[in-house]
Design a protein around this nucleic acid. Structure first.
Lengths: 221, 221, 221, 221
DNA sequence: CATGAATGAGTGTTCATTCAT
DNA sequence: AATGAATGAACACTCATTCAT
């Protein structure tokens, strides 16, 4: 993931908008950050398409004009939020260490799952908006593809280490995607439906399912 | 699924719109069906929010006025498509029979997965639109919750039969959600990213992962 | 001047806007024409940039939406008016017959000048707007270049017939431009400054100046 | 040119803006001059309405705040440029000496035309902007009327000297306007269209046309 | 003298929905 | 049963101008 969060990348070179936080004084940085937070908040309760620049501005206690001083677009704000979120999630993905076949492997997995689910919950509004606007903004689609690639690559590594593809066990590439699918969607279901009051138990079970399915050794007959 | 598919409001009792296909002559049915197909097509390439009634009408080769003769709303059209899709998917979910711990269980699973993935691919545009518009339309959210409930219940049944929750194996409710999450998202990834040229092999691996993780018996030490 | 009055000529092929009057029923044609008239009126008193779509719509007694049913743009309306005007002026330019060296030539010239000045006065608001928006709209600039070319070509023909370039008389191409310049700007000054209450006398003098300068034979020593 | 160059309003008496360059220290003068140049440059490539204060400020390498330290308005900057330009052009107009009926008259005319065309070319951006904004700013309109008046008066003098109005030759007032029209518009066409690669020859022809039409004596039958 | 930040009224444009025929 | 035309509330975005430092 490159640090460039520029717009579509064409003739925006001379755009007056400071796309990133660079080149801003203290006050400017504070305002920009207030707008980002406000954006996240409004996104959370209305979704991307229904989020009005007006709402964001009201929450951030600024003016319409100020918004466009810091972001080229409504989409540009989303992109900034998405970049933040994408970085956090890929960092998390690569933070998963080797997962052993035994109980200590399951414990490590469980801990990591807890972190992931928590991060997902925190970022869900942005993720939802991200998905919502993908068809309309190729750049968002690109970020998504990139994040998907990085995360699944990290998982593939872990799976290969654990012997995926050997002894009749499932192939690593497919497994990585399946694992990512499961974790991501489970996190989504958990946050959006009102599931599982008992988080700890749910985590236990999920960790076990995943460990058994993806990381454990051969099965007994 | 309740028979009321009308808007959330109340005064629609005497609306001229036939919510379902009932009470229409041959020509009317054909027009309505043309609109549904056009809707699905437009949804497929633009997503719900970017889909214009104008586009749908143009593809269906009708007029704006005609559209509102058959549907109360743009949302109403989506609801009709969603209902169709929801029925197909829940039917599919309940069609999964008992899954044994042995190879024949894996084979049955594999076959069912093939059907599911295929159905998902066919319905993806509608599913995407469905998700996109959920926050704005409580009725769609309700349909989603309902479908989610039915499908996960069906899976719970199969998992319980297979001994979930016993001998240190993961609990059925969580497992059902995890399984659904994995299947649904895997299908999504497969269709939206350009994954896996070799479908058959991918299916093999996926079936194996799931069988091992959710349905197989105790593990070897 | 081709009859195509389409937009910039790119991907507008499937635009929903009926760019020309074609394919409209009676009512549609009437509305479109009302908008054109209103546009001309508003342009007349405010100029292009200060003309608000809102004003045009109010004068035409229609709604905002209707405006965009018939024109893609504010610019598009201007283009339609300009096309009309451009046609009228070039037609007028080519309507000038051979101009003899004697008094009957001057009389013919005088008559034509009267027509031109009148047409110019009638079209001045559009011409002003045309000039105003040229830098911003290449298509308008193109129309202008085209009209300029046609008119000066017509004048060149007349001048060549009259012996321009012979006997130490000025060359036809430059003369044509000079003549056009003079007529056009004279018309402009006359309409925008409050000149010459005595129109007939002014016409006499102008015709004589032009006849002497451009069409008359050799000078006395 | 009256000394009031202030806005149309009245309460500007204590405005901090030095309307002219007076009362500024060296650095101030330099900044003001940088802004004027930048203004001319931006006007040249975008026209008045599309010229953004932002652009001017960027080209001048200053800030928004500074701009309003030296000019009350965007219009105020234009007025300053226009005043400069107007002075140059009227000076030029009055610099035309008597034009004799013979070849030496034509030569004098030719030289003056060269100067005028060159000055016009140099000032064209400002002239264009001037014309563009006239309807919106009465003061600019006033300056224009004034300049028009002075220039046409000067020409009238020359024409009267040369016997305009006598012997069936056109009347001086109309001729003066016609002459001004022709020169001004010719200059415009030459600069804005890409005309006449051969400037010298064009000048010859133009001078001859004008001399014949306006200054030469009686014509041969 | 200079500046970065803030402002908000104003404008073009879209699009779901309704209506007259 | 069908349709072309009309509608207008809603929204994103711009930019000249002011202000605090």
């Amino acid at each position: 993931m490159t640090p460039t969060a520029e717009s579509t990348g064409g003739a925006d070179a001379d755009a007056p908008t400071a796309v990133d936080g660079r080149g801003l004084r203290r006050q400017g940085l504070r305002t920009r950050s207030r707008l980002l937070d406000a954006g996240a908040a409004v996104l959370a309760e209305r979704g991307y398409h229904s989020a009005r620049v007006d709402d964001i501005v009201r929450v951030a206690q600024t003016s319409h004009g100020t918004f466009y001083l810091y972001f080229a677009d409504k989409e540009d704000l989303l992109r900034a939020l998405v970049a933040r979120c994408s970085e956090e999630l890929t960092a998390l993905a690569t933070s998963l260490g080797q997962v052993g076949a035994g109980p200590e492997g399951e414990a490590a997995l469980r801990e990591w799952l807890g972190l992931f689910l928590e991060a997902y919950r925190r970022n869900q509004p942005v993720i939802r908006a991200w998905a919502e606007d993908q068809p309309g903004d190729p750049e968002l689609a690109g970020l998504a593809a990139e994040a998907f690639g990085e995360v699944s690559a990290a998982l593939r590594t872990r799976l290969t280490e654990s012997g995926a593809g050997q002894d009749g066990r499932p192939k690593a590439p497919v497994s990585a995607v399946a694992l990512l699918a499961m974790v991501e969607r489970f996190a989504y279901f958990r946050t959006s439906r009102d599931l599982e009051p008992d988080d700890e138990a749910a985590l236990d079970s999920l960790a076990r399912v995943i460990h058994r399915g993806f990381f454990a050794g051969t099965l007994a007959s």
